[in-house]
Simulated assay, not measured.
Amino acid sequence: MQKRKPIYPGIIELNFQAGEVFGCNVYLVYDQDEWILIDIGYEETVEDFIEIIRQIDFPLSRCKTLVATHADVDHIQGLAKAKQILKTTVTGHPNAVRPLKEGDTLVTLAEIEAQNLKMDMPPVDVEHEVNDGDIIRVGNLELEVWHTPGHTDSQLAFRHGDILLSGDNIYRDGCIGAIDAHHGSDIKAFVKSLERIRDSDVKWLAPSHGPMFANDKDFMNRTIDRVRGYLEMADFGTLAESWPLMDQWDDEVAQGKLPEGLGVNEA
């Protein structure tokens, strides 16, 4: 048996526990022998994670539920397999229910034809739906559910004491979860979710990818300012709110204005 290496009382991150990164961060939240998993990652690493759980002496029969932070393939492809092995249930936001039940490869980003990417997305039923303000109980431990849309419309985060299991909202380098219309991204909602995290009294952020880090207002503001700027950038297509350059172009066309040095004077 291995010695448990919790990152916070009642929380173990399974990659950190193993000393090896298998994929997205998978959080085992526990009180005594009862436990849940926040995300599971790819199907091919399910057995690796379950072996780690065995090695740190958690009874497999005491898994209360498997929780999906959101319906992206790198977080939930292994749900059906893990559910079958552990004989447990799946919990997620209502917006994740349909893509998970149908194994929707487009919404989950399991299939991106332009990049010749195609992965299986095994369908799985969601028995328990949770939304903002709900409480997930694990023994006597309570996780407060936050709905933090932006990266996807189903993105959840979970608070326990001074730590927030913060999903794909923000990472230690200031990056954020991918913005893509196919899986329900919303830039304005993303800004609000980041502001909520910034303005909370949460001290630590435990993301779905990469290391844990402190919730620092200056750091958060730099990311929020950058993301807010996406609302006026053509880079983000239909997810942007406006493109100020087009207003400038309207004015310049009306004025017949060209940059100095460009243009031909005809006699």
Rank of each mutant, 00 (worst) to 15 (best):
I163C: 08
D250C: 14
S193I: 01
V202R: 00
I85Y: 04
D31S: 14
K87P: 01
L156F: 09
I38T: 14
I136F: 12
E47M: 11
L117M: 15
R228M: 09
E34Q: 15
E20K: 12
V138E: 12
K217D: 15
D153G: 07
Y230Q: 01
M1Q: 08
P122N: 08
N25G: 13
I135E: 09
R62N: 13
H151W: 08
F16D: 14
D48Q: 07
E142W: 01
L165K: 08
A254I: 09
E232M: 10
V21N: 01
D251E: 15
D235V: 00
K257P: 05
L28I: 14
E129A: 07
R159V: 04
H160Y: 01
N265H: 12
G229T: 14
E127I: 06
D33E: 15
V126D: 02
L205Q: 09
P211Y: 13
E47S: 05
Q248V: 11
M246N: 11
D201Q: 01
H182P: 00
I38W: 14
A18G: 01
V253K: 09
R222H: 15
M220D: 03
T223S: 06
K81M: 07
G261L: 03
L106V: 11
A82H: 14
K118P: 03
I197P: 01
R228P: 02
Q248E: 14
D132V: 11
